[in-house]
Nucleic acid binder design. Structure first.
Ligand SMILES: [Mn+2]
Ligand SMILES: [Mn+2]
Ligand SMILES: [Zn+2]
Ligand SMILES: [Zn+2]
Lengths: 138, 138
DNA sequence: TCAATAAATGCACTTCCGTTGCACTACTAT
DNA sequence: ATAGTAGTGCAACGGAAGTGCATTTATTGA
């Protein structure tokens, strides 16, 4: 797991045991996770620590936060080298109405939108809702 | 205010005094409103009534709910004759990072997105964040 | 090495929003 | 007028986000 330590170090985050575990947990999941998910996975860790770990990860560009319309913040690891703030790296997210999972579609970029005069866009969030691959396949 | 009564009746909502007032309040505002906003505007009405009024309005196609990424549900009146569920009527929303207001850009439709195989889209939510017309102008 | 310092973690508590159950009131229809 | 239905008010609950402070762990440098 030296890779994880390196990734954290490279982003200016000290690789504590807890942080490595959380990173590993998120890397193994292919879907976006909520704080509660992590809480359930690490029952003996305190919620505040997990909460602040996610905050730190987000500030340092290790994860990005996702608003999937459930009013529960989800988080997912950033692609290595991605700049989530830049328009070019803004990808869309898909929320399944059946299994309630949210997934990054990193290949699908958010198209550029022309706004009326006076509006200045700094960020964008595009979420499609429907039936995911897994649920439609069965 | 016979127009409001008619609009409510046409959508199968009985036009009570409270409902007419809420509709009027939302019509006068050009921005999306949260339940708390309405609560503050009608101090003597109960929160539950306002909550259920919004629910009813939403079910009957009078308002649509907006997830602007603040984790607070916003609501705005639907255009007369609009079908918010249909892809063609899905418009984008703009959230101002400065004044914290959210506005419907009903002219700006959400572009069609091609999804990977297996994904079936039923709904979409596109929110742009930045500086609104009002805030960039001054 | 050891003390001083800084960073990370844990615990307790708060606030805010959304939601529900139940009782009461106002309206509608027979 | 009466019964039935729809609307409203009151109280309480639960989940999630966030904060202050004490404690533990890691880092630094004398
Ligand atoms: Mn993503
Ligand atoms: Mn709208
Ligand atoms: Zn699914
Ligand atoms: Zn603004």
């Amino acid at each position: 797991m030296k890779e994880i330590e390196k990734r954290l170090n490279d982003n200016g985050v000290r690789p504590t045991a807890m942080r490595i575990l959380i990173y590993k947990y998120m890397a193994e999941k292919e879907i976006a996770v909520a704080l509660t998910d992590i809480e359930n996975a690490f029952a003996k860790a305190d919620r505040t620590t997990l909460y602040r770990t996610l905050k730190t990860f987000e500030e340092k560009g290790i994860v990005h936060q996702i608003d999937d319309g459930t009013h529960i913040s989800k988080f997912a690891l950033c692609e290595p080298g991605c700049n989530c703030e830049l328009e070019q790296d803004l990808h869309l997210h898909f929320h399944c109405n059946n299994c309630d999972e949210t997934i990054c579609l990193t290949e699908q970029k958010i198209p550029h939108i022309n706004l009326p005069d006076g509006y200045v866009a700094e960020d964008a969030n595009l979420v499609l809702k429907g039936i995911c691959e897994k649920c439609s396949g069965q």
